[in-house]
């Protein structure tokens, strides 16, 4: 069953100096439980595509179905609700709130879902446990290493119990060793919990953690590659 389906998606940026066509006629379907890596040179539209998949942005043309729902023309608040329900984000720059400790950051999406404090804390602790940070709950982001911060971000996504985790260069700010731990974590969540993962990366090795690689060039899908594991 397709968890996301893009049909003829285009994205144009209009500015004073003319229009930039960041994506043109993207057709992509991802099945539940897949682990997809998106690769491509800088400026090829990877982030733009991921933002549209993540309902952070709307396409200029085309249709987008998320878990069977047509979401390409919904209001801002409705999209916020969908992100909150279905999508966990992991960003290159972690994007944790500096004013909150690890636990608070993991609780954040659950607060916007309106879940009461006790239930929230339970789920947040569980998620931090799953990424191996139960001993760092009361630490602020500034007191954590890059790898730990990224694990907090993953825990934050996990606590949402999402259908889909989207990661834009999740290892881009980390050294390769730490990067590999993060990728293993993704692989584990994908395998054990059946969470669909769509990830953007520059790194061929990191992309290899997935089972399918989508290559973009100039806003178009150039080729798709399936990795068969021994």
């Amino acid at each position: 069953m397709e968890i996301l389906e893009l049909k003829g998606i285009s994205k144009e940026y209009r500015s004073g100096r003319g229009t930039v066509k960041a994506l043109s006629d993207i057709n992509l379907a991802v099945k539940k439980g897949e682990f997809v890596s998106i690769m491509g040179p800088s400026g090829s539209g990877k982030s733009t595509l991921l933002n549209i998949i993540g309902c952070l942005d709307r396409p200029t043309a085309g249709e987008y179905f998320l878990d069977g729902m047509k979401v390409d023309r919904l209001s801002d608040d409705k999209l916020a609700e969908i992100r909150n329900r279905y999508i966990g984000f992991v960003f290159q720059k972690f994007h944790l709130l500096q004013g909150l400790d690890a636990l608070g950051n993991v609780e954040l999406p659950l607060i916007y879902r309106g879940i009461g404090s006790a239930e929230r804390k339970r789920r947040a602790k569980e998620a931090l446990d799953a990424v191996g940070l139960s001993d760092r709950m009361r630490h602020r982001p500034s007191e954590l290493s890059g790898g730990e911060q990224q694990r907090v971000a993953i825990a934050r996504a996990l606590a949402q119990e999402p259908l889909l985790i989207l990661a834009d260069e999740p290892t881009g700010s980390l050294d390769s060793n730490t990067g590999r731990t993060i990728m293993e974590l993704f692989q584990k969540l994908n395998a054990e919990r059946g969470i669909t993962v769509v990830m953007v990366t520059h790194d061929r090795d990191m992309a290899g953690y997935g089972r399918r690689i989508v290559r973009l060039l100039d806003g178009r899908i150039k080729e798709e590659e399936f990795i068969v594991k021994m």
Binding site: D76, D77, A80, R83, N84, L96, L97, R113, R156
Partner: peptide
């Protein structure tokens, strides 16, 4: 603004 973006991404509505 960055913080606002994170909140929005995680599901904060205009109201929040």
């Amino acid at each position: 603004t960055g913080e606002i973006g994170v909140r929005r991404a995680l599901g904060a509505k205009k109201f929040d």
